[in-house]
Design a protein around this nucleic acid. Structure first.
Lengths: 235, 235
DNA sequence: CGTGCTGTTGAGGACGATCAATGACGGTGG
DNA sequence: CCACCGTCATTGATCGTCCTCAACAGCACG
């Protein structure tokens, strides 16, 4: 996707708004006529489970559409909602505008398609871990993914701004066990020892533990990267 | 996707061939210049694990492209391969042809996009089951998915033509435990007692056990259904 | 100063992995 | 036709990982 395509998209962004951490960006039952784009912060797609638990499916970073599947699938899965994990700033694009845009721009259409395929890639990876991997691997992999996606949008922080609860809900582990796993990682000098917030110290080792192969994530060129353009356009 | 779009696609199908059960349709390292379409039989996307194990990600039924992600992603994940689970008949479509086709046909492009989103949907569902949920739920859900997909292509058999090994590799369970789980299902009179092959007797109960909500699978109108047209076109 | 959320720690128990061995079946070659 | 082999299905026993319940500490919030 080149900048020309981008600029076009930017013109159709509407209704920018802020959402504070923990609040829902999309409720499960809603069927809005627009898609939502994350501009700032981190959001997640999740589903409420029978017991009240939360299953996190995917994370949405700045530059990601977080509910494009609703646009594509005629009968949406109405049980999936989107929640802000940190304070977020989001914008919306009307379906009708998307439709018009895609009509004459095969490259833009393919870019969005690609984003969906990437999401599937990440899901495959997570599924792979859900199975064979130990809790250590799963948590490590999750952290690697977060770092990779941070870098993809130009932020090279060693901080992972997720709570242990978030990690547990995404990895499919109990909070207690996530906590113990993180302590193990701390004892291995892979994570920092600060209680609040997770800080990655030895990233190489983290990748080794996770058997993380970032190749399935080749996002820098793909999904994100237009955030900057977005932000500029709004000023 | 309407029939007009279909007919166009059919014209570009090349190199039909047969693959016998257990053989690879795509090897992991290959980077072919075409995409493969399943015409008959059941295939799966899988990855070889360190210990020699096999992790099955998704199943491909007649009418599915099984490696379209290779076309969309510039840097493919070269560790995923496709294998025939039963005797299959497959055809290929060259990338160059796909490109030409999509250029002027936004609806066709969207149909393929939709297929990717659906695959992500299925992966989400499987992920959901991966760690939450007992082995009983996981196996039951897997069987429900197979039945649903069979129906999606017009086959209403109560037969699931997968071996227990296949189920184990897809559900992320050991073969031994899958076997015991299936026996439990048999004792609940949900599955037939024949040793060879799996026969679903009480489908309602199976769905209840799996807490299966087929709504995430709305494929009848989407992915498949063009198989019949394909077959006719080849004669 | 309570209330709530996140993080931490302990103990017990269940589920499923692993190892090992056997039976049933189909195919292949002698 | 039968012996041999490989794959799939089955069963038993042991063991480890991770869940559950329960309680408490730190911190931010009103």
């Amino acid at each position: 996707m080149n900048n020309d395509e981008l600029e076009v998209l930017v013109q159709f962004v509407k209704h920018q708004k802020r959402v504070s951490a923990g609040a829902d960006i999309n409720r499960a039952a809603e069927s809005p006529k627009y898609s939502t784009l994350v501009l700032e912060g981190i959001a997640c797609s999740y589903k409420r489970l029978a017991g009240g638990g939360r299953q996190i499916y995917s994370f949405h970073y700045p530059g990601d559409f977080c509910d494009l599947y609703r646009y594509v699938l005629p009968e949406r899965d109405k049980t999936i909602a989107v929640q802000a994990l940190s304070d977020c700033s989001v914008a919306t694009v009307d379906y009708s505008d998307i439709e018009q845009l895609l009509a004459g721009r095969p490259k833009l259409a393919q870019a969005l398609w690609r984003a969906s395929v990437m999401e599937a890639s990440i899901l495959r990876q997570r599924l792979s871990n859900a199975r064979r991997g130990s809790a250590l691997q799963r948590v490590a992999d999750l952290l690697c993914e977060q770092l990779a996606r941070h870098e993809a949008i130009g932020v090279c922080s060693r901080h992972v701004p997720l709570s242990q609860v978030d990690i547990a809900d995404a990895a499919g582990l109990s909070i207690v066990h996530v906590n113990r796993t993180i302590q193990t990682l701390r004892n291995l000098n892979v994570l920092g020892k600060t209680r609040q917030a997770i800080e990655v110290i030895d990233r190489k080792e983290l990748g080794r533990i996770a058997q993380f192969n970032g190749r399935y994530l080749n996002m820098p060129q793909l999904v994100s990267n237009w955030t900057v353009h977005m932000e500029e356009a709004e000023k």
